[in-house]
Amino acid sequence: MAMSDTGITRPAAQQAGMPMLHKIIFLVLLVFLAVLPFMVYPVFAMKLMCFALFAAAFNLLLGFGGLLSFGHAAFFGSASYVAAHAAKVWGLTPELAVLSGTVAAAILGLAIGALAIRRQGIYFAMVTLAFAQMVYFVALQAQFTGGEDGIQSVPRGDLFGLISLRDNVSLYFFVLAVTFGGVLMLYRIVHSPFGQVLKAIRENEPRAISLGYNVNRYKLMVFTLSATFAGLAGATKSQVFQLASLTDVHWTMSGEVVLMTLLGGMGTIFGPLVGAAIIVTMQNYLATFGAWVTVIQGVIFVIGVMLFREGIVGVIARWIKRPL
């Protein structure tokens, strides 16, 4: 699908290391996140970081791969189930539980991706939706997922068998390390030669083919990577909340991550993080308004599509004339 006619500013190729501006932003972000648990409720801050990573992973596929998946909840949710199961039933330590969830998402991503990338545009979106619905069905029916109740009371365990994560603050820094590391890795992928080829494919697929690139292999790789990082986010979330539930695999979760990415600015590095932060904060602080949250989300969607197709960060990037 050609997303190039959308007027989104495309960052110029960044071949030589990370530009100073990005370094500064990452540094400021890291400092901010290090003091955040002492300012707001740590569990809320952790939720925020998990969704930021989820949105960033999704953005790798949509913003840089040009592929709209409508079924990313499948990877987020299944990783969350596997990680919860691993920690609770197999008694694995948190880092191994998260790892097993992530691996599960990667395998699932590879399998679904191999089938889905054979289609384009809206058909691609529909194939991913179809598979996500099947994953949801399995989550509802399978024994180990606990059906409607989900997997509850997942123990928090000891990191590497040594450091107790029962305390919110120590867990927070574990989550910070995982999600921040994840986002940095995504950054690295986007700015690698692989990322450049992706960009070429997104801009002009026939041309990339004529240059001798095996387009499908690249698409499958980016799909799998995106699924893997989405899984990393989901697996981490299950350790934070100590549960995995159907919410994580439902199609509305797939819709939410699209919203976050779109709102923040797809195809930007920092956009999805901003989008996730806004949506999660909104859900948290507007919870008492009940259905109004849905209305407000809808309004943001509409305004975003009508007026800010570049997203918040995209607009800022245009103002300061620097890629963000």
């Binding site: 569990v43 939720k47 989900g150 994580d248």
Partner: peptide
């Protein structure tokens, strides 16, 4: 939603 509920309860 169990995740929303447990988040509020903890807080």
């Amino acid at each position: 939603k169990p995740d929303v509920g447990s988040n509020i309860a903890r807080q």
